[in-house]
Design a protein around this nucleic acid. Structure first.
Lengths: 140, 140
DNA sequence: CATAGAAATGATAATGGTTTTCATTTCGGC
DNA sequence: GCCGAAATGAAAACCATTATCATTTCTATG
């Protein structure tokens, strides 16, 4: 085997300091709204970053489980990701046209779901709430 | 060449009266909660009804578009169907364990979503709201 | 009754996003 | 330098859903 001529960066802690992880984080941050794993992967390649699709999926999944990114499903069943701005529980108002999204609080919804569930005798209630519409720019 | 005898667009009386359609409707009605197309198909075969998977999908899709059944996506991206009990807009409180579901009204949610959207300048707002929990039977 | 044309059906193939597999590479520590 | 754990990624597997298309079923009509 040939000698390795140059060693790439990535000094320091491995998991988070990985070249791929950093590139992914950067890409995520540069996206205004929700984007699919595939799109993120494409964006990375466009930027010249070389990251495998598998790695993109793996990191997004990990980030999602860790609560560092939000994940929702669009109508086609694709999973869309977005970097979280707050760690508190929240929902999204997403533009159908451009994908831009706003995080919204949902106190009213939380209370409503609690009440409804209790009335029906349900426990350990969770909920999925997503809003879609046209943002000011795309609206007309 | 003979004159093309125009055929009256056959009424939908057939579509609904089809053996397969009836079997599907019956199966749907016998399921207490949300079920996937695959499960319904399996159930039909179990009953001895011979209905192709394609047909199951086709009918479910048609029924869904017609508003005769509700369709939601579970966490795995699968589409789950359930016969509608009311034609009015409503949401569901579904048991994570047994799949049983209750239809709930969501006036509070409608108003909340309207308000939030307006505040953000969004228009033509739609929403996805699903509640999950443990029903009285499965909860304790 | 025969018959043509339409709708409906369903076996099969294709799609496509996501996950697995597994061999390889990277990197910290000794 | 070397070992082993973690990370990576190309390729294959998965699997629900859709598209294809030949065949069957039904209905109206002559």
């Amino acid at each position: 085997m040939r000698t390795v001529t140059t060693q790439q960066p990535a000094r320091g802690s491995r998991a988070r300091g990985t070249r791929q992880a950093q590139a992914l984080a950067a890409a995520l941050g540069s996206m205004p709204g929700f984007t699919s794993a595939q799109e993120i992967h494409a964006e990375l390649r466009r930027k010249g970053e070389q990251v495998g699709l598998t790695t993109v999926y793996r990191h997004l999944q990990a980030l999602s489980e860790a609560g560092d990114v939000d994940a929702i499903r669009d109508d086609n069943g694709e999973i869309l990701y977005r970097r979280c701005e707050t760690t508190a529980h929240h929902h999204h108002l997403t533009c159908r046209s451009c994908g831009r999204s706003v995080e919204v609080e949902g106190k009213a919804v939380e209370q409503w779901s609690e009440r409804v569930a209790t009335e029906a005798g349900f426990t350990e209630v969770g909920h999925t709430v997503e809003l879609f519409g046209l943002c000011p720019d795309c609206g007309s």
